[in-house]
Design a protein around this nucleic acid. Structure first.
Lengths: 250, 250
DNA sequence: TTTAGAATGTGTCCATTTTACACATTTAGT
DNA sequence: ACTAAATGTGTAAAATGGACACATTCTAAA
């Protein structure tokens, strides 16, 4: 019934049941290469974009891949590794970032077994105008993406679904917008990400009832129509009033 | 701004920009030991339980740890590794299981850097009466757990929170119950996991309106009070009617 | 300067859902 | 036969969600 890993059994025998030399134990473990892949979303021209780079790999020539790197060189936490990649590739270090899932299919990397931990990241494209374009680093419209290198399309899809769900229950969308935004911009964001149309009046009513948007008393400028009011999201108030959501529904 | 990993730079130079020998590339990667840790939940005596084992490690003597193992010996997917562990440790292979998160703090294992992918698993304790108790393998009440080996308490907490949220949006709770269950048992399950009291009438109305419980025409037996009707969950109907949830709320 | 067009901003009505709450029924146990 | 305790159902009020209309403000073109 219960089969104990051989490594542990060996160690147990040496120690009469308890393992003392943990370092030696860990050294005996099999190892795999680990990468972190970042799905970096941005929002521009009313479309959800993702930051991609042309693949380095001959067999994926012409295909795009996520921004990734090894995650263990230094003694860094996984989250730190993801922040490092963001910093290296975009120059930004104040970016929203969250772990989504780890992908480990044996065949996912043509060069051998490589695990990757997928991170989802949201940033405001306006604040980060790309200056470098090595390997065609650039924004791509999410909805029009087809083939990608490795299993990166699968990872992207998983992160997109994660985002669709997450944005409805947590205030992350604001990370994709400028600090000051209009309600129309906010609605465009939600419509683009969720892929649905929403009633303008009900949308505004919804956010009004949450009472988490601060009217900063400014108006839009340089818009080709009547300017709307500008708002900030009240992260402080949100953090204080965060409540445990309870409601069975499936 | 952008700093490329040294490994890749080296390969690029050899290949005039594109990497051909992916195998060689992967072999040059740094590696880490990977484990899978399973948080196996059960429900008994109206309490949420978790399956734990006494730690093998001298420095964690007396502390309990999750059921884990290495995840890369064979060319198995991460999910497969988790299923393998379940099978080895409980003898069951038809158990609900889902990946929750990967933990990678450099200090999380005293023997060196070890990543672990946490899986959450739900099973019906009645169907799996433990016969083996090596290393005190046994069920523990979740709410009364304090110290554990490694960072396993942190992992357990994360999985518990995951479960609390997940059980409200997906029909996983039924995996913790017998095939036939009463509405009272179902409510006890929700109350225990969410840690709240619910109104019996509204709870029943809620599930009645979902129309996913099948009245199998049987009654409870051997209960010290009026027997209630027994139900099955209609997984088939659920799968067919699964809808995309839309509703901003935070 | 006037006017048309388009987007903003607010409010109402109705249907649905959630919540609070009460009473009759059935069974076990004494 | 009677009590205690849990099952099973219903109803009314409150809150929420969705469909919908109209006046206002600004841009841009005539």
């Amino acid at each position: 019934m219960k089969k104990e890993p051989a490594v542990i059994t060996a160690f147990r025998k040496k120690n009469g049941g308890l393992i003392e030399n943990v370092q030696q134990l860990v050294e005996s473990y099999p190892r795999v290469p680990i990468t972190v892949d970042c799905v970096i979303f941005g929002f521009d021209e009313n479309e959800l974009k993702v930051l991609l780079i042309k693949s380095d790999i001959e067999m994926y020539k012409g295909k795009y891949s996520l921004l990734g790197d090894f995650a263990i060189d230094n003694d860094e936490d996984l989250d730190e590794a993801a922040y490092r990649i963001l910093k290296e590739r975009t120059g930004m270090d104040d970016v929203y970032l969250e772990q989504v899932r780890t992908f480990g299919k044996p065949s996912r990397h043509p060069g051998g077994r490589v695990l990757t931990v997928a991170y989802c990241s949201l940033l405001n494209i306006q604040h980060h105008k790309l200056k470098i374009h090595d390997n065609d680093l650039d924004w791509h419209t999410v909805s029009s993406l087809k083939e990608m290198a490795f299993d990166h399309k699968e990872i992207l899809d998983a992160c997109y679904q994660w985002l669709q769900k997450r944005i409805q229950e947590h205030p992350l969308g604001f990370n994709l917008l400028p600090d000051k935004f209009s309600l129309r911009e906010l609605q465009n964001l939600y419509e683009a990400i969720l892929g649905i149309d929403m009633d303008r009046r009900n949308f505004r009513k919804k956010f009004a009832s949450m009472d988490l948007l601060i009217d900063i008393g400014e108006m839009e400028e340089d818009v080709p129509h009547r300017p709307g009011k500008l708002y900030k999201f009240d992260f402080e108030k949100y953090e204080k009033s965060k409540r445990k959501w309870v409601g069975i529904d499936f």
